[in-house]
Design a binder for these strands. Structure first.
Lengths: 460, 460
DNA sequence: CCTCTCAAG
DNA sequence: CCTTGAGAG
């Protein structure tokens, strides 16, 4: 590439610098739920510090779905097992090996038709420690604060505990290794046998109640069994045609996955959508589920999607967004499959990699839809109106690309955002950008706690 | 191309339909200037109707730069010569032949250093009739109304006559024939020997005082001599590297051209700019000229530009726009080369093919710059806030593309828009879109009359 | 289905 | 300099 062309490519991908980053940062505050943040965070205690725990191999029952009250795994909050075992993760290794013998043979129906398959419940602390073991040669992951935006009156309390939501494009293994061309990321850092622990570590650190993933090409052999063992219900929808399929030694198509904690929610309805644009089907999909909260009795509609990538496709994204909004309107007004008073608002959370900056039409569509959605991460900014400066930041042969593409939308009249996980700084991300030895994906995970604004019993 | 891919390509290029088109339409009203609209307009009288005039071959002096008063060529306003001579245009043919012997040898300096070379002044009505002759086998061009937006108090009067401004990307001949791939346009319609008459007909129909063109690859052999003979001063700036140069039998690089009527204005200063982005020079250019109005004594700064095309280059366009605004600020605050009270506002008009929809960053930059610019064509909409639905509409192998990319920006505190030429409807444009047998370019011409808000003598 | 690389004009 | 089309993965 000649200098001029390279310059153009770089210019084309310049990072938006006009938006201010988040300013108000608070440390983790003691909430109902401890997030077990400690061992692998730089600045809070690196790996190998505070060695205390041992590494039991038995399967522990960490959470129960029998009781209605939210049970949060809180054991060993600031302890770490670290160097007790270095070579491989025994528990996780056993789990994966036992379950990946028929990776593609396990239909989603199986998971959805066996609502009480919590026979092999695993202790998440245990599993997190195993991740730390496997990853001990990796650099410590930078710490991310949970930020409680100022001026919000928290709605959560013991009868209305907040719901933790995570949104993350985890980077399809086939794409990361095979064709995405992250030239500044060592191939070694993309090796699946380690990267999967990095992803799992992130999930286990924050233990969301609802987990929305994109670019999942290891659902049946990895995430479904592991998440099921941790007490989650999972659902997966592959893209009709995935670019992963062009990579040699691929693991099947990538797609969206939606998990929820079965101790907190029960499933009322699922819709697997193929997004359309101008009446024609596209290659993008969405999962929409209506959940019933076992604690409050409230219902909640959750959706996950991954829109068409790249510039030049703004109109298609906008049409796909319109189609999704239309489906969501239909689902939430139907009352999630229940025949009920149509006036009852069904609160909605939509997580996704929209592949669109906030300036794009599809963002405007979501902001201004009759569903009354707002984007949670705006609350991280000092003016509470500005999206983060980036949710993905990568270096490709064509140049550096720093942009805000991922969002958590929520019904602002029905839900309140209690806190958000902050965005790593440029320094924390490092000069090679994403992915890297400490960030397994080219996208950052987004996470927030929301709670119902209205207590259902007060409305009755 | 398989159906699915074709569908995606089409979706990608969908026409924005949310913006309302212009609603208020008025017929041409008798102004100071007759635009000679008549013969070749469908719906107003087709070609061959109302044959009256003869076709004198001598060179007539239509306008004089000696007197300060605006002299508008008005002879034979609704007459047409039509079928008096069918094969070729004598006057125009003579002109072109005499002047295109050394097409590339004529430097711009020549035109700019000989301010009184009006020896060969040509009657525009005469020339228009010759165009009509050559084009008589072409379908009649659809009529376009001059629209006087409601609610505007016109500022023009006999001591402050309005200034007619035309903005047009005329489509480089080398690109239209060679590589732009307008698959629905017959190659025959793109033949330069006829297309140049179609372009000239459009210019002669409206007779702007200021003419801003992009994609001019026939400046020295065609537009410079013809426009000079009509009493215009011209300036041309080629792109540093033009894609025309890759076409066999090209006529040199394309670039921007700026013409002004010498009876109305004199030239005070010219800047030929190569646009930069992030301190680095790009392949895009602009011409900026400071003019002195012979009627009102007011000065006016005029700029023409053509920004980087295609999606994926939004950031580069924005940077180029920022660079142009910076240069314009410097030029207008310097007072156009004159040392004067810096508080005096130098009114500004910026015409260009910005290759950017109104939703793009570069549009926002221009709207909100400290120069106080507004986009003239918004006044065509009923809410006076909305750009036209399209200024270009073409069908390429990759799909149909209908978008608003061209703008006339003006200093809203110093200038008032009296009227605008409306935008042809979808039906007028026809199913093959642009270009076509009646539209020589893939872009529509934009035209408006502006006048100074303040009489200069009232300020003194 | 999609995207990158390459070569041609 | 920049775009387009072919071909690979």
């Amino acid at each position: 590439m000649n200098p001029a062309r390279r310059c153009s490519a770089l210019l084309n991908q310049l990072c938006v610098s006009s938006r201010g980053g988040p300013t108000a940062r608070r440390p983790f505050s003691p909430a109902e739920r401890s997030s077990s943040a400690g061992p692998r965070y730089s600045g809070v205690g690196g790996r190998g510090v505070g060695v205390k725990g041992t590494c039991p191999q038995g399967k522990l029952s960490g959470a129960s779905i029998a009781g209605a009250a939210l049970v949060c795994p809180m054991g060993g909050s600031s302890s770490s097992s670290s160097s007790s075992s270095s070579s491989s993760s025994r528990l996780f290794g056993t789990l994966s090996q036992s379950l990946n013998s028929s990776p593609l043979a396990q239909p989603d129906l199986y998971a959805e038709e066996s609502p009480d398959q919590d026979l092999a419940e695993v202790d998440p602390d245990q599993l997190l420690r195993e991740c730390e073991d496997v990853l001990q040669r990796r650099p410590a992951r930078p710490h991310r604060d949970l930020v409680y935006p100022s001026g919000t009156a928290p709605c959560h309390h013991k009868h209305n505990p907040s719901i933790r939501i995570m949104q993350w494009n985890i980077l399809a293994q086939a794409l990361g290794e095979g064709k995405d061309g992250f030239i500044r990321c060592p191939l070694e850092a993309l090796n699946w046998q380690e990267r999967k622990y990095l992803i799992l570590e992130e999930i286990l650190t924050y233990r969301p109640d609802i987990l929305c993933l994109q670019e999942v090409d290891h659902y049946y052999d990895t995430f479904q069994p592991i998440m099921a063992s941790l007490g989650y219900h999972g659902s997966f929808l592959a893209k009709p045609w995935s670019p992963c399929l062009d990579v040699e030694q691929n693991n099947g198509p990538d797609g969206c996955a939606l998990f929820f904690r079965r101790s907190r929610f029960s499933l009322q309805a699922t819709a697997h959508l193929r997004l359309s644009a101008m009446m024609l089907p596209t290659n993008q999909v969405a999962i929409v589920q209506t959940l019933h909260c076992r604690v409050t009795g409230q219902r909640l509609c959750v959706a996950v999607t991954h829109l068409k990538a790249r510039s030049g496709w703004e109109r298609l994204r906008s049409a796909q967004g319109a189609d999704l909004l239309q489906s969501l309107r239909s689902i939430t007004s139907r009352g999630g499959g229940q025949s009920e008073a149509p006036s009852a608002v069904l609160p909605l959370v939509v997580c996704g990699d929209f592949n669109a900056e906030p300036s794009e039409d599809v963002y405007r569509r979501f902001s201004s839809s009759p569903l009354g959605l707002d984007s949670a991460y705006k609350l991280l900014s000092s003016d509470r109106q500005t999206e983060p400066a980036y949710t993905t930041w990568k270096i490709r042969p064509s140049g550096e690309s720093c942009s805000t593409l991922d969002y958590i939308w929520y019904t602002h009249d029905a839900l309140s955002v209690d806190c958000l996980l902050d965005i790593p700084t440029e320094e924390q991300i490092g000069p090679g950008r994403l992915p890297s030895y400490h960030y397994p994906s080219d996208h950052l995970s987004l996470l927030c706690d929301v709670s119902f604004r209205d207590e259902p019993h007060r409305l009755m």
